[in-house]
Amino acid sequence: MCTGKCSKCIGVVLFPLAVCAIISNLLLYFPNGNVIAPDKITDLVWFFHGILGAGILVILPAFMMLGAGGAGCCANRCGMLLSVLLAVLGAAGGVYCVVISSLGLISGPLCDTGDGKYIYPFRNDTFT
């Protein structure tokens, strides 16, 4: 299999995954389909890890990989360099998304205590 065909196959897989990451991050702003105040939304959502990290920074190399299947693509040094740089950018976006998501899992959800006050009940804020 030519590297152009392989990269085209990877681009076809990356594009829907990036769109799913963007949609998933957008859904975090509307819990249960309701529009709520910004102070009642988890603070790590505002880092746009799904939109920027796993979305836009992965869509760029996906588009490059989709266009890599043309004739003579392996002889183009500038195109190959751009492909490698965009792949590094996509990997950095994926790492950014994983780090922010992991921090979100560590701190836990933002919960209503019943009296209208929102706190992170599982976050360890003690400084001993």
Rank of each mutant, 00 (worst) to 15 (best):
H49M: 08
A21N: 05
V13R: 01
V19N: 05
G94T: 05
Y118D: 03
V45K: 01
T126L: 12
A92P: 03
A18T: 06
A37W: 01
C6M: 14
M80Y: 06
G94V: 01
M65A: 07
S101R: 12
A71H: 13
G108D: 07
L81Q: 07
L103T: 00
L44Q: 05
C2M: 11
G90F: 02
L105I: 03
A62V: 08
R77S: 12
S7V: 13
P16C: 04
G33D: 01
A87H: 04
S24N: 15
P109V: 09
V19Y: 02
V58Y: 05
C9I: 11
N32T: 06
V88K: 04
G53F: 03
G69K: 04
C20K: 11
Y29Q: 06
V84N: 11
L60E: 06
N32C: 03
T3S: 11
G70R: 15
L52V: 14
A92C: 14
N124F: 07
R123T: 10
A68H: 09
C6R: 10
V98F: 05
V95W: 08
I10W: 13
A37K: 10
L105N: 14
T128C: 05
R123N: 10
L44H: 14
L66H: 01
M1L: 07
F63S: 05
V95D: 01
I106Q: 10
L52C: 05
G93K: 05
V19C: 07
V88F: 15
T126C: 13
V95M: 04
A18R: 01
G11L: 00
G69A: 09
Y29F: 15
V19P: 00
G55W: 01
L81N: 01
C6K: 15
V19T: 10
L82S: 05
Y29S: 10
F30L: 07
V35Q: 13
I51V: 15
I10L: 14
N25I: 05
C78W: 11
D39Y: 08
D39T: 12
W46D: 14
P109N: 09
L105A: 09
K40W: 02
I22T: 06
A71I: 02
I10N: 09
A91M: 15
N34S: 15
V84G: 06
D125H: 11
P38C: 05
